[in-house]
């Protein structure tokens, strides 16, 4: 009965591809033609894309679809335990893709979660693609919201749409995009559906075409809110350019060991400088164009 509902959001490129000569169908095909999988290309790249997500959401399948690599994909948590890297070229830009270990959260401390979090925080990716399981959105959104606290340059890859359909679940991707304030690309990576749309979204965010605005701001108890504000202010004074000072402040309040380490050894300062220099570049680019 879900098939009868003409919800535009549940249109993955599955339907676009089978729609035949439709104008959007051909544009999707053109976009696929624009994708050049570079495998383990280690040359110069224009943008760094981090791939995050809960375990078992098809993250590695998305990675393989983008890079043409064949990292083994298993239907159980923990298949990717270390960072895998690959590359692709899309519309003239080279993208380096970093596949992070699947995690439920960035807040606990385990080896794989640390890897993911450290990269998001200190690796400073241009775009973070969060792969989510459309059949279990609620639980997956927890990680999306956590990542949105660190960076707003996020694209949500709403994967396993085919599975959702099989289970009678419909996800309003457009509404989800509005709620989160970032692009949402519905897809079925195993079938190769929705990849072109994902690539477009990533390109837009990477080039700053769509200014993603994370709309969800975590509501905290007033006392916590005040403490975070105070500490964040200090952090910005100490590490100018730090983009996610509130997030770092909250971690410090919680006594998070690895964040404390980053403050102590100056890693945090480096991130701040990177952000600052990127902003300078962007400003310079706008001035010349």
């Amino acid at each position: 009965m879900n098939a009868d509902l003409p919800l535009p959001v549940s249109r993955t490129s599955a339907e676009l591809d089978t729609s035949g000569g439709g104008s959007c169908g051909s544009c999707a095909l053109n976009n696929v033609a624009n994708l050049e999988k570079l495998g383990l290309h280690s040359g110069r790249h224009d943008f760094v894309v981090a791939l995050a997500g809960n375990p078992n959401t098809g993250k590695s399948t998305v990675f393989n679809a983008l890079t043409g690599l064949r990292q083994h994909v298993g239907n159980w948590p923990g298949t990717t335990v270390s960072r895998a890297e690959g590359a692709y070229r899309h519309q003239g830009h080279a993208y380096q893709v970093v596949d992070l270990p699947g995690t439920y959260s960035l807040l606990s401390t385990s080896n794989d979660e640390d890897t993911a979090r450290d990269f998001l925080l200190f690796g400073d990716p241009d775009v973070t693609v969060v792969v989510v399981d459309a059949t279990r959105l609620e639980r997956n959104l927890n990680l999306v919201l956590q990542i949105l606290q660190i960076t707003d340059r996020v694209v949500v890859a709403l994967n396993l749409m085919d599975e959702a359909q099989r289970h009678g679940i419909t996800v309003d991707a457009r509404h989800l995009a509005r709620e989160l304030g970032v692009p949402v690309a519905p897809m079925s990576a195993r079938r190769g559906h929705g990849i072109p749309e994902l690539l477009d979204s990533v390109a837009q965010v990477a080039r700053g075409g769509t200014a993603p605005r994370a709309r969800v701001r975590q509501r905290l108890a007033p006392a916590v809110e005040r403490a975070v504000d105070a500490l964040a202010e200090q952090l910005v004074a100490e590490f100018p350019g730090l983009a996610n000072s509130r997030w770092v402040a909250l971690r410090l309040l919680e006594g998070d060991v690895s964040t404390e380490r980053a403050v102590r050894d100056g890693t945090l300062g480096d991130v701040g400088r990177q952000h600052a220099s990127r902003r300078d570049l962007v400003t310079a680019g706008q001035a010349t164009s």
Binding site: Y104, S105, L107, S108, T109, E138, R139, N142
Partner: peptide, 11 residues
């Protein structure tokens, strides 16, 4: 501590 946090992260 972390063990409690881990359970909470699972929802």
């Amino acid at each position: 501590g972390p063990e409690r946090r881990r359970l909470m992260d699972l929802g």
